[in-house]
Amino acid sequence: MESMEKKIREIAREIFINQKIDFFLGYEEGSVPLKSRPFFIQAKEKTPDGLINRLVWNSFCSNNLAVFLPKFFEHDPRKKPPRIGISVKGCDLRSIVALIKEKQVPRENIVLIGVPCLGMIDKTKVEANFQGLEIIGSEETPEGVLNITTKDGKKHHLKREEFLQEACIECRFPMTEGTDYLIEGKARDPGDGGYARIKAFEDKPPEERWEYFKREISKCIRCNACRQACPTCWCKECFAEQTDLRWIGASIDLSDTMIFHLIRIFHQAGRCVECDACYRACPMGVDLRMFTKKIVQDVDELFSYVPGFSTEDTPPMSTFREEDSDNFISEP
């Protein structure tokens, strides 16, 4: 990964020098262990070397950077839309593709640097491993070992592979396609998508499914972190905030919260790339991955559509086929 980091910096420098971009969007070291954070570089000078050298690439670059893009391209006649260079994993790129297809991001203003993804560390899994003992330091070795320092001063060595995010283990698209630059390296082997879990959940009795849904929703505090972290939740005005006709209440009434999440997930049909940004963002640990995954699987099963790397195909919810199934229709 160190060589990837070096390469990303080189490319960032190169495209700044060639004046191809106004901004670069990557990751820098975070201020808490096990976290890298989004990092913007704005070219005030020709090559902002000091800033470029802060760019990192490691196993903590989980944030889906696509989420920042649509805001830059909101229509404003007074401003020229910027050109942005961005380092992307498979999931980030598929989100960007979805945004391009929905005309939220102009492809020609984006310089894509694809990074083969080895999977990212799941912070909660590592934390769970130490049962509440605070982690004060983390670093990784090229051999795939996570060195963790805990509050008591002890050092621990964990196998990186055992603490990856579920989304990464199951990821079907760890390798990017169709980027302007591609960082050399091997991505992890594609996973199977983890749809067996959906099947297992479906086989449970309805009451059990409902209880699970209810339990997860009851943790929600309506902070909207899931929505804000989701790259394809780009509506300028969310239905939850429409006041002309108030769809749902503002409180944590279970019914309102359920409808918020249900409709938010439904609106992701054909857009969701299962990056799990919503799950990671949630401060309360609400886990609705079972439901986002379901909508992805249904879209694939019903409309043979998988949000991939091609900008050519039409998003499934804005088109139809005459032979789409009618089997859910009630007959008298």
Partner: peptide, 23 residues
């Protein structure tokens, strides 16, 4: 970097803003 969510304000012990609505 801000995403515009309200996690910081809702977890904050001193944030106290509220809204009043009828249902």
């Amino acid at each position: 970097n801000c995403l515009g969510c309200g996690a910081c304000t809702y977890l904050c012990p001193t944030c106290h803003c509220f809204d009043i609505t009828d249902e």
